[in-house]
């Protein structure tokens, strides 16, 4: 077969497993063949003989020899992934879809709103924004998690807070004694931020309910639909715009997304389900 077989995964070796929270782990993979992605694009990860699931890399797209996936234990495949040991071989297909349009962010402020495991794709974006921060005015990152234990990427957040042009706000639904930041759902953080709305783009990624209320809040703040970018989660099974499982209106989320501008999808049914 001379042409590329779109269904054939390439092999990638698991070289490190990082425990991020009781339910979330990061997996560092080194692909055996050339692989690169743009931030916001996703891959299909195959557990040999078990199943395949879509994940957006959480590492910097500028690092080319390896990449990282941050995965919450949520279903049949992810439960098996959580049992993986360093040295095992995985399959990857992709990258797929349309990522974040970074050039649109140039000379603007970027307000990033994330929730739960939605931090994974956003960390990849933040790494990339970090690399192009000369071209940006400011990056404000608002993140919400269920509780302090589920606040992932603590060392990265600490580092982000030291970076020029970066501002970080965090909240948890339920605090513990050691928590000194905000308490409440992720959208409460939007009340804390002061951004020049006309000159800002916003990126939202997280559980559907958070995305829904996040978008409503942004609109209430004065953001226009076309200033809001969303990373949608549907059942992206083939990644190729064929299998139909991720159809959202006239879009195949896997190929036409997963990043959409809100005005492209706001009138479609069931986008928050």
């Amino acid at each position: 077969m001379s042409e590329k077989n779109i269904y054939q995964p390439m092999r990638a070796k698991l070289v490190e497993v990082i425990e991020e929270s009781p339910t979330i782990k990061s997996f560092v993979l080194i692909p055996e063949t050339d692989f690169s992605f743009e931030t916001g694009q996703f891959i299909e990860l195959t557990m040999d003989g078990i199943g395949e699931a879509p994940f957006t890399p959480s590492s910097s797209p500028l690092v080319r020899d390896r990449f990282e996936l941050t995965i919450m234990k949520a279903g049949y495949v992810t439960e098996r992934i959580h049992q993986l040991q360093v040295g095992e071989i995985m399959g990857i297909r992709g990258p797929y879809g349309r990522g974040y349009p970074l050039e649109v962010f140039y000379n603007k402020e970027v307000l990033v709103l994330g929730g739960g495991c939605g931090f994974a794709p956003l960390r990849s974006l933040l790494y990339n924004l970090e690399a192009i921060r000369d071209k940006l005015k400011r990056v404000v990152f608002c993140y919400g998690a269920k509780n302090p234990k589920e606040c992932i990427y603590q060392p990265y957040v600490d580092r982000l807070r030291t970076l020029e042009k970066f501002e970080v706000h965090r909240t948890v639904d339920v605090a513990d004694e050691g928590w000194a930041e905000e308490v409440g759902v992720a959208t409460v953080l939007l009340d804390k931020v002061d951004v020049p709305i006309q000159d800002t783009v916003s990126v939202v990624c997280g559980p559907p309910i958070m995305m829904k209320y996040g978008v409503l809040k942004l609109i209430e703040m004065g953001f226009r639909d076309e200033q809001i970018y969303l990373s949608m989660e549907k059942n992206m099974s083939c990644g190729l715009g064929k299998c139909g499982h991720c159809m959202m209106g006239e879009y195949f989320v896997c190929k036409d997304g997963p990043v959409f501008r809100y005005d492209e999808i706001k009138d479609l049914p069931d986008i928050w389900k």
Binding site: R11, T46, D48, G49, S237, C238
Partner: peptide, 9 residues
């Protein structure tokens, strides 16, 4: 369609 996994990728 569905993609069903079998051993050896």
């Amino acid at each position: 369609f569905l993609l069903i996994d079998r051993p050896d990728f």
